[in-house]
């Protein structure tokens, strides 16, 4: 009985304590910005919109609206690469924006149509391997 109470019993108690190990609650796993069920602060941050004039040979100067935003990489749970799927809700056009420089999280979207006094809204998603995360919409008014 002494051997049992001194060695076996504590071992069994430790062992059975493991039975009550907290299980993984998948419902609480929502803080990864790449998760389609992501819940948390906005991943995309509007930087602003402006008009730029681009010279196109044969056509001349063409005004374009530039929408600048950044991905809040500080929300990422690990250091990763990614692309951004963009849908212009005003024109319906789509694009996939890649990181121009590794470590850079600022993006610019150039639309040929300039609409003033109307918010230019973009639906944005983080993407990898042809699958997209939760969509967010950001808007900027020229």
């Amino acid at each position: 009985m002494n051997t049992f109470s001194r060695t076996l019993l504590p071992a069994l108690l430790v062992l059975f304590a493991g039975c009550y190990k907290d299980e993984v609650d998948t419902g609480s796993l929502t803080n990864n910005p790449f998760d389609p069920e992501y819940v948390g602060p906005s991943v995309f941050e509007m930087q602003g919109t402006s008009v730029q004039v681009t010279f196109i040979p044969g056509i001349g100067n063409v005004p374009q609206q530039v929408v600048e935003f950044r991905v809040r990489n500080e929300l990422f749970l690990s250091d990763v690469t990614y692309s951004v799927l963009l849908k212009d809700l005003g024109t319906g056009s789509t694009a996939e924006l890649r990181q121009a420089v590794a470590g850079s999280h600022g993006y610019s979207y150039v639309r040929d149509t300039i609409i003033e006094q109307v918010p230019a809204c973009l639906e944005l998603r983080l993407s990898n391997n042809f699958s997209a995360a939760k969509a967010e919409v950001i808007c900027a008014t020229l």
Binding site: E23, V24, T26, L29, N32, F34, D35, P36, E37, F76, L77, S78, V80, T81, Y82, L126, S127, N128, N129, F130, S131, A132, A133
Partner: peptide, 27 residues
């Protein structure tokens, strides 16, 4: 491992598979 994978994964499809299948199966 499945729980830790959630932190490192950056593929939305993989994350959906992890939460929808791998973690429930492991549980």
């Amino acid at each position: 491992d499945a729980e830790e994978a959630y932190i490192t994964l950056a593929d939305p499809g993989d994350i959906a598979d992890l939460k929808g299948k791998r973690i429930p199966d492991a549980k």
